[in-house]
Computed example of a mutant assay.
Amino acid sequence: MKFRRLENASLDNKTALVRVDFNVPVTEGGGIADDTRLRAAVPTIQALQEAGAKIVLLSHFGRPKGRIDPSLSLGFLTDPLAALLGSPVTFCEDLTGQAARDAVKALNSGDVLLMENTRFLPGETANDPKLSAQVATLGDVFIQDAFSAAHRAHMSSAGLADYLPAYAGLAMERELDHLSQALDHPKPPVMAVVGGAKVSTKIDLLQNLVSKLDILVIGGGMANTFLAAKGVNVGASLCEHDLADTARQIMAAASNASCEIMLPVDVVVAKEFKAYAASRVCAPQDVASDEMILDAGPETVNAIADAMDRAKTLIWNGPLGAFELEPFDTATVEAAQYAAKRTRDGKLISVAGGGDTVSALNHAGVADDFTFISTAGGAFLEWMEGKALPGVTAISN
């Protein structure tokens, strides 16, 4: 897709309002449990510093719902961010008043100012145009660098673009380039692995993907619903029987689009949902009434690996089984490791993201081997569903 990139912005001595995602996980003591989101913002901030801009950072944190909540203040992030940048970061508890204007006015080129939690403002999540216009007076350009917030039509993620020239930050740029490479302009044949518990959460995703893919692997609890829709008795397995018609419609659409759907040809079953429960491998049609499917079997993994040998582009979303419970993580781990090997060998472009995907790939030890892994969650899924994202539309040409 075409969007406005940072390299094309005039930034010298300009004040850049930068939407980052500093909604970091915290420890019980109030410290940062994982600074990945801080580190993700560093390249853009440093690029702005090198370009001579004055940097004003905007982020949400938690769900204060338009009210000031001191426990959700962003002030605790200034020191960790300064350590990552190697330069000072100041903080302003205001966003719309005189204190905010004074804090921005005091900035010199290269200075970094972190503003208070945008969701303290009642008009943030409503994308109030008056609030957008008011906050926009603080800057000269708007930099959207939080793809994880791009699916929200909020003031700080989209509304500011109505009043300021808007560009993608480097993290946003990297995300969009990789997602476009995977879905909009992929190298065929294109394959997707879509797993997880429920079809109901991924109907839009599946309906969009079957029109774009050559091969679609369906795993996890979702596969049970498709097997049941084909008349297979899945016993006590997690299954949305009420979505049988939907599953059949998706399979019909895939057939019409010449998209091959792959379902498990063998499964791992147990009578208890717990780690190391007694289990066996059987064909899907041989599942007993008191057994539940907890993983795909070895023949299914082999079939997935064979499909990966044919594919040039892979999109991965969701696990193939109950990967949190050993040994029912086997299919997910083995398939992910094979995808990683194909990627390392330069034979596969692999893009993953959404939901439990990042955890599953970390568990398999392959997160660093995929071409790109998105941590954006909901935004990644909505992109894959083919939906327009307000924060992306804001920077589009």
Rank of each mutant, 00 (worst) to 15 (best):
Gln98Cys: 02
Met115Gln: 06
Leu183Lys: 04
Val234Asp: 08
Ala228Asp: 11
Thr330Lys: 13
Ile261Cys: 06
Leu57Trp: 04
Ala197Asn: 13
Asn117Ile: 06
Gln98Ser: 13
Ala153Pro: 05
Ser289Leu: 08
Ala51Leu: 02
Met292Tyr: 03
Leu114Trp: 02
Arg63Gly: 04
Thr78Asp: 04
Gly169Asn: 04
Met155Gln: 13
Val26Asn: 04
Val232Arg: 01
Ala339Asp: 02
Asp329Gln: 11
Val301Arg: 03
Arg248Ala: 06
Trp383Cys: 09
Asn108Thr: 11
Thr332Ile: 04
Pro80Arg: 09
Asp242Ser: 02
Ala83Tyr: 11
Val42Phe: 10
Ser279Arg: 05
Ala47Phe: 12
Ala146Val: 12
Ala340Arg: 05
Trp383Arg: 13
Ala379Leu: 06
Phe147Cys: 02
Arg174Thr: 12
Thr78Trp: 12
Ala126Arg: 15
Glu116Thr: 10
Phe380Trp: 07
Val268Phe: 06
Ala278Asp: 15
Leu160Thr: 00
Ser289Gln: 15
Ala275Tyr: 05
Met155Ala: 15
Val232Glu: 01
Pro327Arg: 05
Glu7Lys: 15
Met222Gly: 04
Pro298Leu: 10
Glu7Tyr: 08
Leu314His: 12
Glu385Tyr: 06
Glu291Lys: 15
Gly297Trp: 08
Val366Asn: 01
Ala168Cys: 14
Leu85Ile: 14
Pro80Asp: 10
Val190Cys: 06
Lys130Met: 09
Ile304Tyr: 09
Ala223Val: 08
Asp145Glu: 01
Leu205Trp: 00
Thr78Gly: 09
Leu113Gln: 07
Thr300Glu: 09
Phe273Asp: 03
Asp128Val: 09
Pro129Thr: 11
Asn397Gln: 13
Arg248Phe: 05
